[in-house]
C-alpha cells in the first residue's frame, strides 16, 4: 500500500488534466439525476404527457378549424400536433434548463458548495459541469419526445431519407444544446446569487411565463401586437423552435393556415442568436461565480 506523509500528494493542477474539472461536477450531477427515481421518471414522463393530452386535445380542435382553409397547390401541410411537438421539445428544454442550476443552491445551503469553492478547481468548471449535465438531460428528454411524438402521430421526419433523419436529429440536438446552455448558465447564475430555493422558484416561474407564451411554441407570432411581436422574434425560445421545425418538418410547410419557409441562412441566424445568448449568459454566470462568497 502506498503510504505517503502529509503534504506529499503527487498530483495537482500542474498535471495538465485540470481542464477536465467540469467532468467531476458532471459526474456528480448525473449520479443525482439517476438516483432520484421519481424525479427521473416524472421528468421523462411529463413532456410525453403534455404531448399526449394537450397536443391531442388542441390538435383535434385546430385541425378542424383549419380544415377548410385554402391550401396552395403543392404545399406541404402539417397538423397541429406536429407543429406544437416542436414547441413541447422547446418547453421541456426550457424548464429542465432553468431548474438545472438548483443543485447549486442546495449545495450552497446544505451541501458541497463550500468544499467545491475551497478546492483548487477553477470556478468556471462548475458552470461548465452544470451546463453539460443539463444538456445531457435535455437530450434524453428531446429524444423521448421525438420518439413518443412519432408514436402518437406527429409527422416528424416524414418523408425524410435515413440520412436526412440523422441530420434532422443532430440539428435538433444542436439547437437544444445551445439553447439549454444559455438557460443553464442563467439558472446557475441566479442560483449562486440566491439565498433560498423558494426565491429561485419564484424567479424561474416569473421567467418561464413570458418566455414560453411570447414565442411561436403553440401559435404563429405574426398576428401578435407589434411590441409582443418584436419580443417574440428575438426570444431564444422562438429561435430554438424555428430550428427544431426546420430540422423536424422541413424548410417549407403550412401549419395553422400559415406558410412557413426557412432558408438555411435563417437557420444559421437563429443558431447564431442562440450562441450569442449563451455567451452572454455565460459571462453573467462567470461574473456571479467570481463574486460568490459562501461561508
Amino acid at each position: 500500500m502506498v503510504h505517503l506523509p502529509p503534504g506529499h500528494n503527487t498530483f495537482g493542477p500542474g498535471d495538465g488534466n485540470m481542464t477536465y474539472g467540469f467532468m467531476t461536477i458532471y459526474w456528480r450531477d448525473m449520479i443525482r439525476f439517476v438516483r432520484f427515481r421519481t424525479l427521473l421518471v416524472s421528468s421523462l414522463l411529463q413532456p410525453a404527457l403534455w404531448l399526449a393530452f394537450f397536443g391531442i386535445a388542441m390538435s383535434s380542435n385546430f385541425d378542424k378549424l383549419t380544415a377548410g382553409m385554402p391550401v396552395p397547390a403543392g404545399a406541404y401541410v402539417v397538423g397541429y400536433l406536429t407543429f406544437m411537438g416542436a414547441g413541447i421539445i422547446a418547453m421541456t428544454t426550457l424548464f429542465t434548463s432553468l431548474f438545472g442550476g438548483i443543485v447549486i443552491l442546495f449545495d450552497k445551503n446544505w451541501g458541497l458548495m463550500r468544499e467545491i469553492l475551497a478546492s483548487p478547481m477553477d470556478r468556471n468548471h462548475i458552470i461548465f459541469g452544470i451546463g453539460l449535465s443539463g444538456v445531457t438531460k435535455s437530450f434524453i428528454q428531446a429524444i423521448i419526445i421525438m420518439g413518443f411524438g412519432i408514436l402518437i402521430g406527429t409527422a416528424f421526419f416524414a418523408g425524410f431519407t435515413p440520412f436526412q433523419t440523422v441530420i434532422g436529429v443532430a440539428g435538433i440536438l444542436a439547437f437544444v444544446a445551445m439553447f439549454a446552455l444559455g438557460f443553464l448558465f442563467l439558472s446557475a447564475a441566479i442560483a449562486i446569487s440566491m439565498e433560498s430555493p423558494e426565491g429561485l422558484q419564484g424567479v424561474i416561474t416569473l421567467l418561464t411565463m413570458p418566455i414560453f407564451f411570447a414565442s411561436n411554441a403553440l401559435y404563429p407570432i405574426d398576428t401578435f401586437p407589434e411590441i409582443l411581436k418584436i419580443i417574440s422574434v428575438y426570444n431564444p425560445m422562438t429561435l430554438l423552435i424555428t430550428g427544431i421545425r426546420y430540422f423536424a418538418i422541413g424548410p417549407d410547410f403550412i401549419a395553422l393556415g400559415k406558410h412557413y419557409a426557412y432558408t438555411p441562412m435563417d437557420i444559421a441566424w437563429a443558431f447564431g442568436g442562440l450562441a450569442i445568448f449563451s455567451v452572454i449568459m455565460f459571462i453573467f454566470a462567470w461574473w456571479r461565480f467570481r463574486k460568490a462568497v459562501v461561508t
Partner: peptide, 20 residues
Amino acid sequence: TLDRDMTVWEILEFHGRLYN
C-alpha cells in the same frame, strides 16, 4: 457539508476528483 443523497464512497471519490 455532505450531499445526503450521495454514498460515503461517492463523497470521497468526488473530493479526490475535485483535487485531481
